[in-house]
Amino acid sequence: MSFRDEVQVGSKDPSGFGVHRLRFVYFGLIGLFIAQSGLTYTTGTEVPKESALLSEQARRGEALYREFNCTACHQFYGLGGYMGPDLTNVISTEGKGPVYAKAFILHGSGRMPALGVRDEQADDLVAFLEAVAATGTYPVRNMDLTAWGTYREMHTDEE
């Protein structure tokens, strides 16, 4: 592919686009960005079930998650640090669950330090992890790929 450069140095608009046309495209894109942002903040990010919304207790847990900077080591949906495991489904994975998660929070293990939180704060963190687990599944293991380079269920793991 090649571009044709039409440069006339010294002319009023050497790019050849026209300043007004350039501004129209630029601000048009910004208008679309605002519309996209509005949709993303609302309908684009609704959760399918009530349990995925954070309760008061889960919100306290989320605040603790931030306070202890857990994201330095852990991930949700593969987003975060790399020292520890992804926690998206730590509550819903077979063999793990609330008791398992609470034990780690209270006592630590290996590289994970004990957070030094009270028992009810550990419950808040577990409530938060429960709400996260209710939002979906990660990692995605549905290998149903399409010719377009996508996978049919881009965020579910339904067998």
Binding site: F3, D5, V7, P14, S15, I30, F33, Y77, P139, H155
Partner: peptide, 28 residues
């Protein structure tokens, strides 16, 4: 000041505005 420079600036700008979700394909 070339057309190429502005075309590629436009491409980068479009990606800045609308290309962010490749970070979050697995998020539902």
């Amino acid at each position: 000041r070339s057309k190429t420079a502005f075309l590629l600036f436009g491409l980068g700008f479009t990606n800045l505005l609308f290309g962010w979700a490749h970070h979050i394909y697995p998020v539902p």
